[in-house]
């Protein structure tokens, strides 16, 4: 449903629903921590980020109408067929070798944290770098855009821009705190 909506906000709502659903899947797989993170980060931070952008770009009914024009069958049939093929192949691969039934065991956050800061410490550091780069990159691009702002946009949107930026960095900071819990 996410991918077929014309209106971005609808799509995002369905996306949130999808995230909730997968979080439930995680829970049932015995990964409660991941399930919580899924809701907090994906459904919380990232969706909010999207919504901000949608708001800021004022994507409303106009966009929906445009989308409806773009989404003609001849546009999507060919990719869809290809992807369908891919799906079929992947399913074939998936079920080509039978495995013994698995038992669900809860992997508690403690064990996760131990391995995270034990054997994966380098990867955690690298992730820190990545997020840092993300912050710096976003800040830089946002700043660059602000310069453009005077030229192309009215003054009114400057504040929104600023909000968005701080918001975004805050979201990422959330990530880090979440990671480092």
């Amino acid at each position: 449903m996410v991918i077929t909506r014309y209106h971005p906000v609808h799509a995002l709502l369905y996306l949130a629903v999808s995230f909730f659903a997968s979080s439930m899947v995680f829970l049932s797989l015995g990964a409660p921590f991941v399930a919580a993170l899924e809701i907090i980060v994906y459904a919380g931070a990232i969706i909010v980020l999207f919504i901000f952008v949608v708001m800021m770009l004022n994507l409303g009914n106009e966009t929906a109408r445009q989308e409806r024009e773009w989404l003609k069958p001849k546009v999507w049939v060919m990719p869809a067929v290809l992807v369908l093929l891919l799906l079929i192949e992947m399913i074939i691969l998936l079920f080509s070798n039978d495995t013994e039934p698995m038992q669900i065991a809860v992997v508690e956050p403690r064990k996760l944290a131990l391995s995270l800061y034990g054997e994966y410490i380098i990867a955690v550091e690298l992730t820190g770098f990545l997020l840092m780069a993300g912050i710096v990159g976003a800040a830089h691009i946002g700043k660059h855009k602000k310069e453009e702002l005077h030229r192309f946009l009215q003054n009114g949107q400057g504040d929104q821009q600023k909000t968005k930026r701080t918001r975004k960095t805050k979201a990422i900071t959330n990530e880090q705190t979440a990671l480092h819990e």
């Binding site: 899924e38 994906y42 980020l49 952008v53 995270l116 990867a123 990545l130 993300g134 912050i135």
Partner: peptide, 22 residues
Amino acid sequence: VMFLFILAMAAAEVSVGLALVL
């Protein structure tokens, strides 16, 4: 753990990607 990394990467990607979109 891998999921956590993917999460972090997704966050970074989305922040940069949305900035680019703007």
